[in-house]
Design a protein around this nucleic acid. Sequence first.
RNA 1: GGGCCGUUAGCUCAACGGGUAGAGCUCCGGACUUUUAAUCCGGCGGAGCGGGUUCGAGUCCUGCACGGCCUACCA
Length: 497
Amino acid sequence: MSDETGSRLDGLMAERRAKLDALRAQGSDPYPAGVTVDASLADVLERWRDEIDPGEGSGHRVAVAGRLIARRGHGKLVFLVLAEADDELQVMCQLAVLGDDGMDRVADLDLGDWVAVAGEVVRSRRGELSVMADEVRLIGKSLRPMPDKWHGLRDLETRYRQRYVDLAVNPDARRVFTIRSKAITALRAELLERGYVEVETPLLHAQPGGATAKPFVTHHNALDIDLYLRVAPELFLKRLVAGGLPRVFEIGRVFRNEGLSARHNPEFTMLESYEAYADYHAVMALTQALLQRAAREALGTTTVTYDGRKLDFAGDWSRRTVIDLVREATNRPDLDYDTPPATVADIAAASGVPVEDGWSTGRIVEELRDRLVEPTLWEPTFVIDYPVDVSPLARRHRDDPRVTERFELIIAGREAANAFTELTDPDDQRTRFEAQARARAAGDDEAMPVDVDYLRAMEFGMPPMGGLGIGVDRLIMLLADVQTIRDVILFPTLRPE
RNA sequence: GGGCCGUUAGCUCAACGGGUAGAGCUCCGGACUUUUAAUCCGGCGGAGCGGGUUCGAGUCCUGCACGGCCUACCA
């Protein structure tokens, strides 16, 4: 990390600052309040893409602006390149047009400066669409040297800390965040078209809930109470369904006070949706439609390459029960939820999966699923019917009380969505809350406390409903083919400099 | 949290068994009216921070800071 004391940097910045001071001394404002442009660079590139012969002019004058990213001087003719996101437009500056003063001002421009240009749209002899400038104006002086355009910026720490530089010089950074924007727009559009209402529920919770995770704690001064940054919007969204909104969703930030890694950022974006009368089969159909649309609209295809391997979102995704997958992975077709925990622990040991004393059969089966099954599933797969003991908010399966009507969508060996037929029975919910509360009292700071208001909402009556949660950042990782969550979050959490 | 690795010029990267640290791009000066990584000539500039060993440390030891990877918890 540069400590910014190098004499080279000081010198480079001093040169730029001297130009800034000289401009001010001449009464010219290097940071004007606004500038009139009549076209984006993309507009010009598109409008004249197939017109104007090399060496000819269009007769049309445009006013454009952008960041100066390249300069090629030829004495009495200087080529500039302006950039605006992914669009680049060449500007030609001729002594015969701009005069000595104008050429001097062009010479004083530095790479990174924001520049407004007006002039005729022309095509150079070599065929490059250009603006033959008759007016060049500095509209935002850059005082720091940009990384050179050819090598870009690779240092990861600088890319994350100084995302403004990363975005300015690395096309791939812009690509990822464009995909992100399009994918989220697609998810939202699909839900809205299906009649879902987008809502916003509290980020500040009086008690954590909706997921088993360690929360961030903060304090409200006027109320003099601790508040928790939400670990999930789930319980509030389900209150809304209880209140009579049949289809709701929220796309928003959640916060979990846990480790950082290539797949974990303390704040991340979650999509949650709830639909009255639906069960988890309906939610599977929704999930598939959402992801297929996100891929299509963000990438233009449902076939992507992830980590060098082909991944296809198209078609209907297979559905496999947890117990079947675990039976296959352990080669123990006799395994069932009635198998004694000690026996299941032996099976786990035989597969090299460590388990802890006191774990139930369901808990061990879940561990086996996580260790043995999940990493092997590459194409999108709905893994369904999770043990009830690892699913405190999911409804029991209508045909088997030992499991829940829950699914996780696994893609590329990782969880992409988690959903279930929601638990709507207040008595069952109270029992499960109490189990969580006991775990919490026993020292499990990820377990949820009893949420009496949520229970009250349930007691007023809830329709059957299907709920869905999608980790948006991880979805974007899949679509954009990046291996770390820091690459899909503009400003990932880092230790302060 | 644990283990391993990294930090050299504005950017991207080198070199060496401990002996005056190199290159490309950027930048500065000069030439050039059709370039597009323009070209040509000349030039400036550097070891994350702090200790120690040594005649001498970017190189060895050590503390700190930040980052990366693996691992643990998790989505």
